[in-house]
Amino acid sequence: MFHRMSRLAGGLVALAMGLGLNVAAAQESRLDTIVKRDKVIVAVSSTARPNGFIDENGRHTGFEVEFARLMAKALVGDPDKIELMTTTVDGRFPAVLSGKADFGISTATIYPDRAVRLAFTRPYIDSSTLVVVPKGSQIKTLADLDNENVVLGSTNSAAMVDRAKKYAPKAKAIFFDTDSAAALALKSGRSTAWQADSAAANFFVGHNGDEFVVLDGSLGTINNNAIFMKPGDFPLWLALDTIVREYVNGSRYGEYAALYKTWFGKEPPPQRPFNQN
């Protein structure tokens, strides 16, 4: 009995110490935590081909997942010292805000409204938006989208919703949870056009090229996708931002270019002089 009591007391002391340590840990930068842990925890997607998905062999890969490994290589010296935390779109921001993940690489566009609550590094890739229509469709150009007979499908993101409102205010816009559902809507005739991130649109047309085409030009502005993290941790932000710069425009550009080529089949934007960076 006494033994059990003392064990209980020991447990309580350990718990109290744990709580105390947590308070202390909140004050040190997450960067130190990562280095001490010797592993990074990154929030990623597993349902966004080609950025993050599970390949035919069951391996979690994709451009963003492999870029996350490059970040791990720079932070703790080994691309495999990484824990991938897979969440849906609903969970990606809470994952970093709560501290469950150190940072996230999950097709997040830098968006002014978001920057108030979330810290972004500089972008690691640009994304543009393409429009896919069935072959032989009445819609021949992007200008044709603004018509009462058009049903424009896409995923339910702020950027997509704003673009639909701006470039096709007369069209009926419908929004789905995932790209695959939006693609299915186009295939089944539920929508007559699909606006999608260039990577997803190109992948889809690559596999359904006899039935669907991509319209010339991109819809709206180019957006920047960036690593996101909990705001307020300057040392971690500076480290991540510096590493991203080194990959996309600095000493490790070669590795970045190779990765880019693997997933998108073309060269990334060339390195720029520092004063245009």
Binding site: V89, D90, F93, D113, V116, R117, N156, A158, F228
Partner: peptide
């Protein structure tokens, strides 16, 4: 979901 996507809150 749209609001969450826009605001990151």
């Amino acid at each position: 979901k749209l609001l969450l996507d826009r605001s990151a809150a």
